[in-house]
Design a protein around this nucleic acid. Sequence first.
DNA 1: ATATCTATTCGAAGCGCTTCGACGCTCGCC
DNA 2: GGCGAGCGTCGAAGCGCTTCGAATAGATAT
Lengths: 332, 332
Amino acid sequence: MPTIEDVARLAKVSTSTVSYALSGKRPISAATRRRIEQAVAELGYRPHAGARALASARSEVIGLIVPLRSGIDVPVIMQFAGGVVTRAREHAHNVLLLTQDDLVGLERATDGSMVDALVVMDVEADDARIPILTRSRQPSVLIGLPQNSSGLTCVDLDFEAAGRTAAAELAALGHREVALLGAPPEVFERHTSYADRVMRGFRDAAADHGLVAHLVPCPATPAGAYGVVDALLADSPGVSGLFVHNERALPHVLSRLREHGRTVPDDVAVIALCPEDVALAQQVPMTAIDLPAATLGGLAVDMVMARLAGEQTVETRLLAPVLTTRESTARR
Amino acid sequence: MPTIEDVARLAKVSTSTVSYALSGKRPISAATRRRIEQAVAELGYRPHAGARALASARSEVIGLIVPLRSGIDVPVIMQFAGGVVTRAREHAHNVLLLTQDDLVGLERATDGSMVDALVVMDVEADDARIPILTRSRQPSVLIGLPQNSSGLTCVDLDFEAAGRTAAAELAALGHREVALLGAPPEVFERHTSYADRVMRGFRDAAADHGLVAHLVPCPATPAGAYGVVDALLADSPGVSGLFVHNERALPHVLSRLREHGRTVPDDVAVIALCPEDVALAQQVPMTAIDLPAATLGGLAVDMVMARLAGEQTVETRLLAPVLTTRESTARR
DNA sequence: ATATCTATTCGAAGCGCTTCGACGCTCGCC
DNA sequence: GGCGAGCGTCGAAGCGCTTCGAATAGATAT
């Protein structure tokens, strides 16, 4: 592999000049720059990442902590990750993959200066990673909201507002008795906050609008979802509006409604909270609040890069929910 | 951050001794080692990854190239990735996330010595990344099989054998007319080889057993899957055995069969090719050939580490399919 | 007591890059 | 014609770690 010295020799300049020409940190005459670029191309030179990291104290890598466990909507995770990687690349950064439970790996990565910054997904209310993050000297941003977010930079969809929006929409459509089919039980047990926040927003807005609201966690399996639908229809036959915050259960819920002879949207109106492609891939195109996973991932990267650049950023940033009406809702 | 020199000073030894004590590359007396370990613990020392990479020409990072695009079973991708990350960690390596289409990023990572080795997922027949891989000095292993795999290290499920196994099983159960519902059309168009290999194996074995076999790609959406099922039942009413090689379409196929009044397994026997958890999560526990994604990912890491260690490994390794009988198949 | 080993430990030379201070040159100005 | 001011470039000092050859000390053999 050619080194910066080979480039310097070929371009007949010093190594520092090559370095400055490539980084742009000092002015270099056009002629010299051209010679250097030519030498770089000719040799196929690539700076050695380790050497650069050592000399500059910057690795140009950001760490991404992903959850690799059950109960989560895996496709959503991938959308987040895709957003993060894509945006990171636009900032000329690479992404190091770390896993939820690997606290040792996290410490190695931060203390060993492998990463310049961290993006943390699927944050729980009382997350074991947070102490490590605050202790490390790298900036980090969380996707999701922990119990106590003071001093932390967070970005997320405003799930509480999403819950409120859905309830308000169902009220506006003339429904009087509604239900939230929420995240799987294990997500609630883990106190991943978005599940609770949706529920709270939905409950409160339903109350404000004088709706009768049922709130039930919903497993992601067909059998589990069927059970929830069966129980709901049996116990609360008056329910005419559903808000489904569970991407994986959604198709099963819709199937089961059909099997019970309930049509969507005429017998039951359904609003989903899920990524747009999922909303469009159902039997009926869903009226839905978009879960903009890739956008959030990209935003997290933007925020963390801003902090790396020394900018003072807002602590927490919640994206307003956007409801798109499609064919799964109708006036009563 | 404390450096190796701080550790050496505190332990009253030279830096080289610290280095040898930590790496184990030369014998160090028990007493000295203990003092060093104590100093390390006391200071919270972590070696600087960049410095280590520079001095040793090893980054202890492996690159993982994942597809972030449509038509693929995202959960399967995550299982692969999880297997890779987990096993990499066991080998004390980190994982750098690279994306399918980012050829520049791939070159930066290899030529810049960011990674010691590469694992490539979802390989296409004629993959644009292969030339870069063969040119780079890092070993790589592909998960999947390209057109021409000579000189490459590959690992995959033996999809052709899986197709044969399924056909043979349906024949053994007494079915005379069968169908393969395969991967989504876009996967075939991309010539990702596993789709073709399953089809070939199924077709050949069906012929050997004197079965009438229909071979159809199957979209992953409900509407698409319904269409395929509807058409199949209409055009080939004699079909009594199905082999579904499409994780995402599977629940929709099963739903649609039920909606047509066909029971599983009595009217139609169904064998799936999917991860075990998916097979178990259907309405009926599926007789299925396991797609051991996490295992394959881990295996890929093992192979790449073996090559890093200088071992001569087999070029291509195909895992034999394992069929587990559950409740979706029955004798005719 | 001296010479010979072995078991440990040390010193120093890089790995390839960035960055700081300094230098030399050209230019415009008085 | 000489001065200061930039601009563009260079040289050298590290960044923190690994690794090679060599030195040291204690133990064993003579």
